[in-house]
Design a protein around this nucleic acid. Structure first.
Lengths: 140, 140
DNA sequence: CAGCATCCATCGAGATACTG
DNA sequence: CAGTATCTCGATGGATGCTG
């Protein structure tokens, strides 16, 4: 990796661009429900507001609404009035948004590897235990 | 990708494990300064507290301290009393921590791609503009 | 040197209720 | 249906000062 660009300056000067880029990327996935929203749209392709809210159990209208607004600004999703019913808004990923799939995959891989390393247990049993817990850090 | 595991259930049931894993991974990088700390240790290999604080301009003792504690718990870094001076603590990445390099690279790639797409401008000039701005969302 | 203690400001998110 | 409006709460991070 070429984080390293010299020897005299501080890290955040050397790696300025890398650092900014990383924060940009993390920003795309910021928000507790964002990865799940993206995953939902990766799987279902097109969903409208209520459908999304139903898919993603636990999310509030407010949070869903603002998350979608955010993702739209970032050009990750598209918002379109349904050609069918009036007053229905359809959401789907843009091409750019679909590019996040690889990133989500790698994040998933890292997360799995990390959990195995930390616990020794495998993910399946651990995930379920976690799910029963709820309410701590890892809500989903 | 095999997010998809059926058709009847909600996304967060279907993708439960994936979703948890992604949140685990994002958790590793959580905290405003965490990626930078990891990058600093990727580049410098071994650093003690004050050296880190100097490298990462702007971070406070409190935040650095708690970030390091967190990373240590997650087995991303190791904390060792310096063999040289007394009272000096050395920090370095574990093997596991070093594995995050690939993830950081991909995040960086995604961030760069995203910024190019959003702005049309290239990252270099944009990064600098951002840096001069400060204080908004993308601090570094 | 390597932190910890305190206080404070901000912000994301949950709960609840309401609307064009 | 697709949101908006409030209010509250907890976690994060900044500022400052102190210590073994």
């Amino acid at each position: 990796m070429e984080f390293y660009m010299g020897n005299k300056d501080q890290i955040h000067s050397q790696c300025r661009q890398t650092s900014i880029a990383i924060n940009d990327a993390l920003d795309l996935l910021a928000g507790k429900w964002t990865p799940l929203i993206i995953m939902a749209l990766l799987v279902r392709k097109v969903l409208c507001f209520t459908a999304l809210k139903t898919e993603i159990e636990g999310i509030s209208s407010k949070v869903l609404s603002s998350s979608l607004k955010r993702l739209e600004q970032q050009l990750i999703i598209e918002r379109n009035a349904s050609s069918g019913q009036l007053g229905k808004i359809e959401y789907k990923l843009t091409d750019h948004g679909r590019n996040l799939e690889k990133l989500l995959e790698q994040l998933s891989d890292v997360g799995i590897a990390h959990r195995i390393m930390l616990t020794g247990r495998n993910v399946q049993e651990r995930a379920i235990a976690e799910f029963e817990n709820f309410g701590t850090k890892h809500i989903l």
